[in-house]
């Protein structure tokens, strides 16, 4: 399973990318996904033989070009859509539906607009004693920095604050794993930087497993223990890049830049033009002709 052990930071190839094997909490095994098209032959092949493992407490980012199917993969792992073939095992059980022990943070913000911040954060805690619920809710509202906004409605908050509410809601139900689908994608640059720093702090405090999808390579390198790089559609995980940099990460340090550039290379993207070259796109089968 663990070939290229001599170079743990840079394993490549579309085969097995088992983390450390046995203690993986998320195991993705040979997942294929095809969406039926309108007519015969127009089926869209999104995922092709994806393997991945995530260990307990790990922060793993999945990066890939826009529309490559990384969100689809996360939705399969979370149990929102069944794969065409292959299987996902989470904490030893095969996934076939969403589970309240694993909470998804949505790209388009899934905070309920008809509930206040407090009510949103407590959404998954209905069965708890009111006093205990209140204590947990307040704890996580404080943790994400929304103290003082308990009674506000989402429409009264900025985009970044709404995303904080959703993160607090996820944490409050005390899941073992949090799935995040480009949660900061709609935020401005400075807010994004702040959110990343806060997310790392929270992750270090809470010791949750986080599987985080992003198209932003910088974001992946700032956040992750390990970055899984996906190819274009039909996508597979082509490369795994371990990020052994101390946190908080200095985004100007040579080590940081080296890791970042390695991911750019893995995705086959020219850093100066943003164009994808041919050399690294061995797995691309659906490249638009003429590009």
């Amino acid at each position: 399973m663990t070939r290229a052990a001599s170079d743990p930071g840079h394993r490549s190839g579309g085969g097995s990318l088992a983390g450390e094997g046995v203690d993986a909490v998320v195991r993705v095994r040979d997942v294929w996904m095809t969406f039926a098209g309108k007519s015969r032959g127009s089926d869209v092949h999104v995922l092709e033989g994806v393997h991945a493992d995530v260990r307990a407490g790990e922060f793993v980012c999945i990066v890939g070009p826009s529309g490559c199917g990384k969100s689809t993969l996360l939705n399969i792992v979370a149990g929102f859509i069944p794969p065409t073939s292959g299987e996902v095992m989470v904490e030893g059980k095969r996934v076939n539906r969403p589970d309240a022990r694993r909470i998804f943070v949505f790209q388009e913000n899934g905070v309920f607009p008809w509930l206040t911040v407090t009510q949103n954060v407590g959404f998954g805690l209905q069965r708890r004693e009111p006093a205990e619920r209140q204590r947990i809710v307040q704890h996580y509202i404080d943790m994400v920095g929304l103290t003082g906004f308990e009674r506000a409605f989402p429409r009264e908050l900025s985009g970044g604050m709404r995303q904080r509410v959703e993160i607090a809601r996820a944490l409050a139900s005390q899941p073992s794993i949090i799935y995040m689908d480009e949660p900061f994608g709609a935020l401005d640059y400075l807010t994004r930087l702040k959110m990343r720093a806060d997310l790392i702090r929270i992750w270090q405090e809470e010791k949750k497993t986080i599987l985080f999808v992003t198209h932003d390579i910088e974001e992946a390198v700032q956040l992750a223990d390990r970055v899984l790089v996906m190819t274009r559609r039909p996508a597979t995980i082509k490369e795994e890049v371990r990020v052994d940099l101390p946190r908080p990460r200095d985004i100007d340090s040579p080590d940081y830049l080296r890791v970042r550039d390695r991911i750019f290379d893995a995705m086959g993207i020219d850093r100066t033009t943003g164009r994808s070259g041919d050399g690294a796109s061995l797995d691309e089968k659906s490249v638009v002709p003429g590009l």
Binding site: F80, P98, D99, I103, F104, F106, G110, F123
Partner: peptide, 13 residues
Amino acid sequence: IQPVYVRAARNFE
């Protein structure tokens, strides 16, 4: 209905 609300609700079982 925004599908995301139903999906979040399903996530909370």
